[in-house]
């Protein structure tokens, strides 16, 4: 009854997908969109406002902000996507150990995730960075580790629901082997919710990554990662607004679009499930 797919929301999703395509191009071939090198220092051109030469102005070292924003897409996205991948992999493996491995394995995995979930994810991420030290790879691992227990719980829960479902019962009654039933029914029906949640989590992971960068714990200078750029701009707010606005706008736009596409994916997926129509 609710959520009638309107023309407006379809248009929004298309727009979001188009923006994401642009961001993806910026991440893969930044040279196509910005010809100026992102790290070229030119003190004579420091702290210019937006203008014809430098569309978004320049920072305190005279670097072109537009170019840095474009080149910032890659580290920013890599951080979020990488972290999500880490979480999906670790979560799925943990969950499958719990579901297939019998009571003892399930108990161990559940108590482990209990402890990890009984702990704010952000704190977990900060702790991992504290141990491994700041940097891109470590920040990715840290955020992935923070997401993984929730993912594991989701897959395990879904798998248990499927395992007790009437259609698994029907397959058992038909005489199929346990392994066959798991491969044919349990896995394919338990994993899609994880992929949906993962899509929805990419936005959150990108945000978390740039937050770590902002705190100086992610990619190190002179990386044009958006959070790191904003951190550098914090001290210059009194003198120029451009450096605080453009990287943040790029980040926000990216996350909004990821979320729009993710929600669309979720709605499609839930529309396909029985009982949701």
């Amino acid at each position: 009854m609710r959520r009638a797919p309107s023309v407006l929301s379809a248009l929004g999703t298309a727009l979001a997908a188009a923006v994401l395509l642009l961001v993806a191009i910026a991440a893969l071939w930044p040279g196509l969109l910005a010809t100026d090198p992102p790290n070229a220092v030119d003190p004579a051109q420091a702290l210019l406002g937006p203008g014809p030469g430098h569309w978004f102005g320049t920072d305190q070292l005279g670097r072109d902000i537009y170019s840095r924003v474009v080149h910032g897409a890659r580290p920013s996205l890599l951080l979020g996507l990488g972290a999500t991948l880490v979480a999906v992999g670790a979560g799925a493996v943990l969950a499958m150990i719990a579901v297939v491995g019998g009571r003892v394995a399930d108990e161990i995995v559940m108590r482990l995730t209990d402890v990890l979930l009984a702990f704010p994810g952000a704190l977990l991420a900060l702790l991992v960075v504290a141990v491994l030290g700041p940097g891109t790879g470590n920040a990715t691992l840290a955020i992935g580790a923070a997401f993984a227990p929730g993912f594991a719980r989701l897959v395990r829960g879904e798998a248990l629901v499927v395992r007790e479902s009437d259609y698994v019962r029907a397959a058992t009654v038909l005489g199929y082997r346990r392994a066959e039933v798991y491969l044919r029914h349990v896995l394919p029906n338990a994993l899609p919710p994880l992929l949906v949640l993962a899509t929805l989590s990419v936005g959150t992971a990108v945000l978390a990554g740039s937050a770590l960068s902002f705190l100086g714990l992610g990619p190190q200078p002179p990386s044009p990662e958006w959070g790191a750029m904003l951190s550098a701009g914090r001290d210059l707010l009194g003198s120029t607004w451009a450096i605080a606005v453009f990287p943040g706008a790029a980040l926000t736009a990216t996350v909004v679009c990821v979320n729009v596409v993710g929600r669309d994916l979720r709605n499609r997926f839930e529309g396909r499930r029985p009982g949701a129509g």
Partner: peptide, 13 residues
């Protein structure tokens, strides 16, 4: 979708 630190920066500005 909006990062908290950016909101903070904008509010400050």
């Amino acid at each position: 979708s909006i990062p908290g630190f950016w909101v903070g920066l904008l509010l400050l500005t």
